[in-house]
Write a protein that binds this DNA or RNA. Structure first.
Lengths: 171, 171
DNA sequence: AAGATAACATATGAGTTCCGTATTATCCGG
DNA sequence: CCGGATAATACGGAACTCATATGTTATCTT
């Protein structure tokens, strides 16, 4: 068989491994950056994750947010208490369903956190400037797929947890 | 002025914005995945971050790890206590400097966590299979740069914190 | 249509974690 | 050797997490 072909296959395998390693690294560094930013605005890093979710996924209910963030509902109450007390978010009752609450991010303070990410932001601009358009498309595409894969993997783990403690598997 | 050129510039700007959004999303999803994995092995998610760092950056000292992970040294003592008690890592005294300690990951249990990431792992294999070699190189390269940018940004924030509380700026 | 049931958010409290500071052990320069 | 610096940990108060309980409102059942 062709050594050229198997050589290419090896390269691909190696690259895939490199990508996984880079992804672990990336997650870790971004996680640390997140921690530093959190410390600056005097919230827990989990709180900042939630704030980010609230900002991006519009006004939403605490229970929805709990599912989205993968935290216990009671924990989320505490998180929202802190975010609300510090003026990051507002709670308002849902007019459709008066049991429910809608949480929305307040725009004023959001600028602060944006400013803290300014360094990372401009660094990313510089990095992106080094690629051509089709390459940027590849990168954006890859990251969206990877994020989706992460979401699915997390969901499967959550479901598995469910199955382990509850009924084995619904028919 | 050329509408074609400004159109391309607009596309690039849009792509850069998309990449930043995708990166936020990616970080968030991976963070949630991390939380689920942590819950499965009964450790805090910060603990898992540290375990990952220990695994990847070989045996290292608690103080080095504290710097690397961006956590308070006293907090790290607690983290290591938990990881050690559960059999994830071992502490051993450094023979060169008997004040110091070396922390190393124990291989046995590491397989468990590997298994929990199996779903994500195979999903990434599939995703990577959809790109050709040069595209994979672009992705790997981008992620390494982004991780580096994150590290620098976090470092700058940490230094700024230092400057804010200590001397304004050393000459 | 009325009552039972479920869903939503939050209160409560026990157990755990975080982190500023103090303590102990060790290294290094003079 | 000794004084100062550095590594890791001990300690304790404040803060956090989470299982469970509670009060309110919606939805289902018959």
């Amino acid at each position: 068989m062709s050594s050229v072909l198997s050589g290419e296959a090896d390269d691909r395998r190696g690259l895939t491994t490199q990508i996984k390693a880079a992804l672990r690294d990336l997650r870790n560094e971004l996680s640390i950056l997140n921690r530093q930013v959190s410390a600056r605005i005097a919230v827990k890093d989990g709180d900042l994750d939630c704030l980010d979710l609230i900002t991006r996924h519009g006004p939403l209910s605490p229970s929805g947010l709990a599912r989205l963030a993968g935290v216990h509902p009671a924990t989320l109450t505490g998180i929202l208490d802190r975010l609300e007390r510090a003026g990051w978010v507002a709670r308002e009752r849902d007019v459709q369903d008066r049991r429910a609450v809608l949480v929305r991010a307040l725009p004023q303070r959001s600028r602060e956190v944006f400013h803290l990410y300014a360094g990372m932001n401009s660094a990313l601009d510089e990095i992106c400037a080094g690629y051509d358009q089709s390459q940027l498309e590849v990168v954006a595409d890859f990251m969206r797929r990877a994020a989706d894969a992460g979401k699915n993997a997390a969901q499967e783990l959550a479901d598995g947890e469910q199955a382990a403690h509850g009924k084995p598997s619904p028919p």
